[in-house]
Amino acid sequence: MTGWEWYAGLEEDVECEGVYSVGGCETRDAAIAEAREQWPDKPIMVIEARMSTAKKHYVDPDIIPFTHTRNKELMGDDAA
């Protein structure tokens, strides 16, 4: 299992498809900053998560599911 890392995604992508486009950041602030570069005026979702390193958990090699999550937060366009 991986260590805890921060991920962020456009709110609509996270809610509809469960996709976090920004990931593997060491800090919450780093994930937010990277997401704000991509989507400066859109709501984003940030989350702290761990993933399995066992390949048996990967149905699609392009999608790696979280095994544990914490600190999920929706941030409006005023977040930074």
Rank of each mutant, 00 (worst) to 15 (best):
Ala30Pro: 03
Val22Glu: 07
Thr27His: 10
Lys55His: 04
Asp77Tyr: 02
Arg28Ser: 02
Lys72Val: 04
Glu12Lys: 15
Ile47Ala: 01
Asp60Val: 05
Glu48Leu: 01
Arg36Trp: 02
Val22Lys: 07
Tyr20His: 07
Glu15Asp: 12
Val59Ile: 12
Tyr58Met: 09
Lys72Gln: 12
Ile32Trp: 11
Glu11Val: 00
Asp13His: 15
Tyr20Lys: 00
Leu10Trp: 15
Met75Val: 01
Tyr20Trp: 11
His68Met: 13
Glu26Val: 00
Glu37Phe: 02
Glu15Gln: 13
Lys42Pro: 02
Asp77Arg: 08
Asn71Ile: 02
Asp29Gly: 00
Ile63His: 14
Met45Trp: 14
Thr53Asn: 08
His68Trp: 15
Thr67Tyr: 10
Ala33Arg: 12
Glu37Val: 06
Glu15Ser: 13
Lys55Met: 06
Val22Tyr: 10
Pro43Ser: 07
Cys25Thr: 01
Asn71Cys: 10
Leu74Val: 06
Glu73Asn: 04
Asp77Pro: 06
Asp60Thr: 02
Glu17Cys: 08
Lys72Phe: 02
Val46Trp: 08
Glu48Tyr: 06
Glu11Ser: 13
Ile47Arg: 05
Lys56Tyr: 09
Pro40His: 09
Ile44His: 07
Glu37Met: 08
Val22Ser: 04
Pro61Cys: 03
Ala54Phe: 00
Glu15Cys: 06
Asp13Asn: 13
Gly76Tyr: 01
Arg28Asn: 00
Ile64Asp: 08
Glu37Lys: 10
Cys16Leu: 12
Val14Thr: 09
Thr69Lys: 06
Gln38Tyr: 08
Gly18Tyr: 10
Ile63Phe: 15
Glu15Tyr: 12
Met45Ser: 06
Glu48Gly: 06
Gly24Pro: 09
Glu37Gln: 10
Leu10His: 15
Ala30Glu: 11
Ala35Tyr: 03
Phe66Tyr: 14
Met51Cys: 12
Thr27Ala: 08
Leu10Lys: 15
Glu17Lys: 14
Gly76Leu: 00
Lys56Glu: 11
Glu26His: 09
Asp77Val: 00
Asp77Gln: 00
Glu48Trp: 02
Lys56Gly: 03
Met45Cys: 08
Pro65Arg: 03
Asp41Phe: 03
Pro40Cys: 07
Gly23Tyr: 15
Asp62Ser: 07
Glu26Phe: 05
Thr53Lys: 10
Lys56His: 08
Glu12Ala: 15
His57Met: 05
Gly76Asn: 11
Met51Val: 09
Cys25Tyr: 00
Gly76Gln: 01
Cys16Tyr: 14
Lys56Phe: 09
Asp77His: 05
Asp29His: 06
Val46Ile: 13
Tyr58Leu: 13
His68Ala: 12
Cys16Ala: 15
Met75Gln: 04
Thr67Arg: 12
Phe66Thr: 08
Val14Arg: 11
Pro40Lys: 08
Glu26Asp: 14
Glu34Trp: 06
His68Phe: 15
Arg28Thr: 00
Ile64Met: 11
Thr27Lys: 10
His57Ala: 06
Gly24Gln: 05
Ser21Ala: 15
Glu73Gly: 01
Ala31Gly: 03
Met45Glu: 05
Asp62Phe: 14
Met45His: 10
Lys42Phe: 03
Asp77Ala: 07
Thr67His: 11
Leu10Ile: 03
Leu10Arg: 15
Arg36Ser: 02
